[in-house]
């Protein structure tokens, strides 16, 4: 049997912090507190093992090693001081998958209406995978897809189904 289109792996070690703030006013505060530059609209900025994902014009998602989440949340809250803002440790809220391999894009193309082929290298796209919400960005050799934890089994089933051997989207 041919190989699957991509390796689907559930990522268990990701911490996540939801940040809501006026990014224009507090961007520097956030960047300094978490050590990652503020990403441009619909993109991801990365420094070492931390990434800041642009979720909306007043929301970021900091993805970092799970053990650092509690301290990073506290650091952000301290840095914000009395400024109107929100920083929440939501490390348990999502299921995350890596989709790695030369045909990883084909797997996502079967599930997401977004034009992921033309997503920039540092792009962050929120869309849907079949019937559930998801967020997608690139990693070395493939993509990361996040969705809500309650539908983790559903997402895994979708991704594995879409990656079945021999089902690449190349013209026949």
């Amino acid at each position: 049997m041919a190989e699957a289109l991509a390796r689907i792996t559930q990522l268990q070690d990701l911490g996540m912090i939801q940040i809501r703030a006026d990014l224009a006013a507090l961007g520097d505060v956030i960047a300094k507190a978490v050590g990652v530059a503020i990403p441009a609209q619909t993109s991801v900025s990365t420094n070492g093992n931390r990434s800041l994902c642009w979720m909306s014009h007043d929301e970021l998602l900091l993805v970092l090693p799970k053990p650092e989440a509690v301290a990073a949340t506290a650091a952000l809250t301290d840095a914000f001081g009395s400024s109107h803002s929100l920083a929440l440790d939501v490390s348990d809220m999502r299921a995350a998958f890596s989709i790695d391999g030369a045909k990883a894009l084909h797997v996502l193309q079967k599930l997401c209406p977004a034009d992921l082929a033309s997503m920039p290298q540092d792009g962050m796209r929120r869309t849907r995978a079949a019937q559930v919400a998801c967020g997608i960005w690139r990693r070395e050799g493939g993509y990361v897809l996040i969705g809500f934890r309650s539908v983790g089994d559903y997402l895994r089933g979708l991704l594995q189904g879409a990656a079945r051997p021999g089902t690449q989207l190349d013209p026949r």
Binding site: K110, A130, Q131, V132, F148, S150, V151, G152, D153, Y154, G157, L158, G161, A162
Partner: peptide, 13 residues
């Protein structure tokens, strides 16, 4: 793909 186990997303606690 929306058949069987994947007919609808099942949310699990």
């Amino acid at each position: 793909e929306a058949r069987g186990e994947l007919f609808q997303p099942l949310r699990k606690t």
